[in-house]
């Protein structure tokens, strides 16, 4: 069974969600335009783990009845255990830049803006960072603009920070101070990751990112795809309809 790159990323994120050494993930929220993190959450749920998923942009069955502020109120109380964030730039201290490059407010290249990152990054016990593009353009020594800091000075109210950063090339762990290379995806090496990463990280001897199991793949191509179809039709068509055709052939 051929594993697609998207399926491998979904599997890697699902394993991070289930990491027994991380704070428990009883309630996970997923923001807009995040099909891969959303699929990872669905996979965890379909594997039988008791987890509540709040998918912000699901058109039907949206869990919130107080509008979009309810998510932030829940997070403020500590009732969201895990959230996903990305960024146009991410640096070695896990600082996120969603505003833009160059002078404030992004005069060289403007990104959409910070969304809720400046709040959510502080409020959830853990955050999984996800950015598919892994290049020196995105993973920089120091972000031009900090939307949300990865590290805060002592005395700052903060429940957690990045647990890990998942990219199209590898998985980095984050220990609260710096990133370390946890695994490289098939075809990548510590060297190729270093070449494409602008920040310094501890590289040790990374293993190869494990493929999803046969059961994972069955669930992804069946039940998970069904759950995702309404919110991410384009993604489901691209990743799974093609897989289904290949399987049939």
């Amino acid at each position: 069974m051929t594993v697609s790159p998207e399926e491998r990323l979904i599997g890697a994120i699902a394993r991070l969600i289930l990491d027994p050494t991380a704070p428990p993930a009883r309630h996970i929220a997923v923001g807009a335009a995040s099909p891969i993190p959303a699929a990872a959450c669905w996979l965890v749920k379909k594997l039988g783990h008791p987890v509540r998923l709040s998918l912000l942009h699901r058109p039907t069955g949206n869990p919130f009845t107080e509008g979009s502020r309810e998510l932030f109120d829940l997070a403020g109380q500590g009732r969201i255990d895990l959230f996903f964030l990305g960024g146009g730039q991410i640096d070695g201290q896990a600082n996120l830049n969603l505003v833009g490059t160059g002078d404030w407010p992004g005069r060289t290249a403007r990104f959409p803006g910070s969304f809720g990152s400046a709040f959510m990054y502080f409020m959830t016990p853990r955050t999984i960072l996800f950015r598919e593009e892994h290049s020196t353009r995105v993973l920089v020594p120091r972000v031009d603009i900090v939307s949300a800091p990865g590290i805060s000075p002592p005395g700052t109210f903060r429940r957690g920070t990045a647990q890990a950063l998942v990219t199209g090339r590898c998985v980095f762990g984050f220990d609260g101070t710096q990133f370390s290379l946890a695994s490289v995806h098939p075809g990548e090496t510590a060297e190729s990751v270093r070449t494409n990463t602008g920040f310094a990280f501890r590289d040790g001897t990374p293993c190869v990112t494990a493929d999803p199991t046969a059961r994972d793949l069955d669930l992804l191509r069946g039940e998970v795809c069904e759950e995702m179809r309404e919110t991410y039709p384009e993604f489901c068509r691209r990743v799974w309809d093609r897989a289904a055709v290949e399987r049939a052939a």
């Binding site: 505003v99 959510m120 502080f122 939307s147 949300a148 800091p149």
Partner: peptide, 8 residues
């Protein structure tokens, strides 16, 4: 809560 340290 939050936001401290953000350039915002």
């Amino acid at each position: 809560r939050g936001v401290l340290g953000s350039y915002v």
